[in-house]
Write a protein that binds this DNA or RNA. Structure first.
Length: 637
RNA sequence: GCCGAUGUAGCUCAGUCGAUAGAGCAUUCGAUUCGUAAUCGAAAGGUCAGGGGUUUGAUUCCCCUCAUCGGCUCCA
């Protein structure tokens, strides 16, 4: 029979051959690496017989699909180990995830670290036995009978939901309901590690029973696991919470859970980004505004927040009237809009604000700067005519993507979120708004993921998710199209025909939260921020106090050139001063001693690189300014 | 909110099978004036997260609360 290969080649194989035979016929190396196969677009087991004219791709650990199959098989091994050790444990669900896999168990008592050790040992044993994964397709009744005899209520529930033919995979005597495919046998998993244990609700619903979830990771080579563990350790070093403390950028206190305190150095970073953003916005035609953080109850009823967002809001009483601390800036901007009459000639009209908002997040979700209860949005609202919607959204998308580039973020994904359960406005409005966003994404040929039901309560949105080093995806930018607020606040403008009409409103944020964005930057750069963002750009290190005077003259000149500089005048050895500046991740160190005093040039040391030789003061200044000018907005000045 | 873990000096961590605690770094002071990642010495620093209980006696055992961490859920 003929088998079509991905490159367009055709391979002749005997009748009844499977993908493993195919791999062998191509190369022994491929046969060794083969985990499963993709036949006519569907992933199947390696030993499943092929048919004439099938298109076959051998899946290895090099492809995401191969990894996912490998991890999924690993989760089965984990589940087998758990049930062998704890026969009363009921198995729920065990998929591969982005970084590894998990399996959920219903057990009497949560797993202890000792349990985990025992489980890992048992997994090793199962792996060493090289038990084949065998696929079978019994009747639904047979499967039902098997799992009910074992009391596997979760499997039965899953079985009921299956449309089409269910399948079962068996390793030795252990069986699991599973679509597959799997690697040929348990021996393929050469390295296995449990990463963590956590509670998780059955089907993610907190009304359901809490199960115990074991997260794990696995690889076909031990060295890959070691590499992964090393990577995890590296990632931990980049944790912005740790770096924030070490670099003295910000802190958190029990006196205000979830409210960040910005220290002087953190404030320098914050303000540098804010200044940059402000300039960029003004250049792009935005007008900066500032609105109060406390506004009365009535306003929030009008905006719909009272009905749809109350759980996340803080309240206070002023003169016996209930007020709310703003969780969003839009109502304030609406009041400014309404303060005067507007013409179509003013459109698109863009209000921009560094808006300080408070949101009551559940305490367990707080996470450093990534998730806080008080944060500053780089928020804007664009008022425009319905015709301007698509060009405006296109413009905003480009603006956001250009801004991300300045910070070196090219890895992000875009999501389109549609009408949630809690919403305001009519279905026609939603329909129109969702179509508008979709059409922009499609016209711009942008890859996006659809997130049904995840929109804001007043409109659908396009979100930008930046990926950090820990491979976590963080929502930053957002563009939300809103027909409801203009309606609720009875916004008007006078059109060309002299008629009063209703404007459209676009909510958008770029960094989303300044706080979170700084957290992402810290992790992205491992704390070693680029020169233009570093709180201290240059540290001057005199060799001894004989050179302090010269050092202060250099310091003064650098300061005059607008460079953030500090001098370490302590009576310490130069090695000690260098070490401290390196630990503090200061990008540039200037060493001043006898040589420099005589020659008038400066010894420069770059963070992470070491001594880079001599430079004149003028040269240093122009180099540092060049670094800063890499950022395009500063280029215009 | 739920499940689990953790909470000892500013930081990282020892320790106490129940008799109120120790190191390194950081800090302060003194000495050292030194050439590319840690000079030496001394001092100071803790109601052992907070509250309650058991006990002659609790930082240690038990309970509650708070916070932190890892998840479920939510979200910028």
């Amino acid at each position: 029979m003929k088998i079509n290969l991905p490159g367009g080649n055709v391979k002749e194989l005997p009748e009844g051959a499977n993908a493993f035979d195919l791999a062998k016929s191509i190369s022994p190396k491929l046969a060794q690496a083969a985990l499963a196969a993709k036949v006519n677009g569907t992933a199947v087991d390696l030993y499943r017989p092929l048919s004439d004219n099938d298109s076959v791709e051998i899946l290895t650990f090099d492809s995401p699909e191969g990894v996912s199959i490998f991890r999924h098989s690993s989760s089965h091994i984990l589940a087998q180990a758990v049930q062998e050790l704890y026969p009363d444990a009921k198995i729920a669900i065990g998929p591969a995830i982005e970084n590894g896999f998990y399996y959920d168990f219903d057990v009497e008592k949560p797993f202890t670290p000792e349990d985990i050790q025992a489980i890992e040992a048992r997994v090793k044993k199962i792996i060493s036995e090289k038990i084949p994964f065998v696929r079978s397709e019994p009747s639904t009744e047979e499967i039902q009978q098997y799992f009910s005899s074992k009391g596997e209520i979760y499997k039965l529930e899953l079985l009921n939901a299956i449309k089409g033919l269910p399948s079962v995979y068996t390793q030795g005597t252990w069986k699991d309901l599973c679509r597959g495919p799997h690697v040929p046998d348990t021996g393929y998993v050469k390295a296995f590690k449990v990463l963590s244990v956590a509670g998780a609700y059955w089907r993610g619903d907190e009304k359901n029973k809490m199960l115990q979830r074991i997260y794990g990771i696995s690889f076909p080579k031990v060295s890959m696991l070691e590499e992964y563990i090393h990577l995890l350790e590296e990632a931990q070093k980049r944790d912005h919470r740790k770096l924030g403390r070490e670099l003295d950028l910000f802190s958190f206190h029990t006196e205000g859970t979830g409210f960040p305190f910005w220290h002087p150095k953190g404030m320098l970073v914050y303000n540098t980004i804010a200044d940059f953003s402000r300039k960029a916005h003004l250049a792009a035609g935005y007008m900066e505004v500032k609105t109060p953080i406390i506004l009365n109850e009535e306003l929030w009823h009008k905006s719909g927040h009272w009905d749809k967002y109350k759980e996340n809001m803080y309240f206070t009483t002023i003169d016996e009237q209930t007020h709310a601390v703003k969780p969003m800036n839009c109502p304030g901007h609406l009041l400014i809009y309404k303060n005067t009459a507007h013409s179509y000639r003013e459109f698109p009209m863009r209000f921009f604000e560094f808006g300080l908002v408070h949101r009551h997040e559940k305490s367990s979700t707080l996470h450093g700067l990534f998730r806080v209860r008080q944060f500053t949005q780089d928020d804007a609202h664009i008022f425009c005519t319905p015709e301007q919607i698509e060009p405006q959204i296109t413009e905003v998308m480009n603006f956001i993507m250009n801004m991300y580039k300045v910070f070196g973020f090219e890895d992000y994904k875009i999501e389109l979120s549609t009408r949630p359960e809690k919403y305001i406005g009519s279905l026609e409005m939603w329909d129109k708004a969702e179509k508008a966003l979709q059409s922009v994404l499609e016209q711009q040929k942008i890859d996006y993921q659809l997130n049904p039901g995840d929109g804001a309560f007043y409109g659908p949105k396009i979100d930008f998710h930046i990926k950090d080093v820990l491979k976590r995806s963080w929502q930053c930018g957002t563009i939300q199209l809103d027909f409801s607020m203009p309606e609720r606040f009875d916004l008007e403008y006078t059109d060309i025909d002299g008629q009063k009409k209703r404007p459209v409103m676009i909510h958008r944020a770029m960094f989303g939260s300044m706080e979170r964005f700084i957290g992402i930057l810290i992790e992205h750069f491992g704390g070693a921020l680029p020169v233009w963002l570093s709180p201290v750009q240059v540290k001057i290190l005199p060799i001894s106090d004989r050179f302090i005077e010269f050092a202060s003259r250099v310091e003064l000149q650098l300061k005059e050139a607008g460079i953030r500089v500090e001098t370490d005048i302590r009576a310490e050895k130069i090695g000690y001063k260098i070490r401290e500046a390196e630990v503090n991740k200061v990008p540039c160190m200037v060493i001043i001693g006898e040589k420099e005093l005589e020659s008038g040039s400066l010894s420069i040391r770059q963070h992470g690189k070491g001594d880079i030789g001599l430079l004149s003061l003028d040269n240093l200044i122009s180099r540092l300014s060049d670094e800063t000018r890499k950022n395009p907005v500063f280029n215009n000045n």
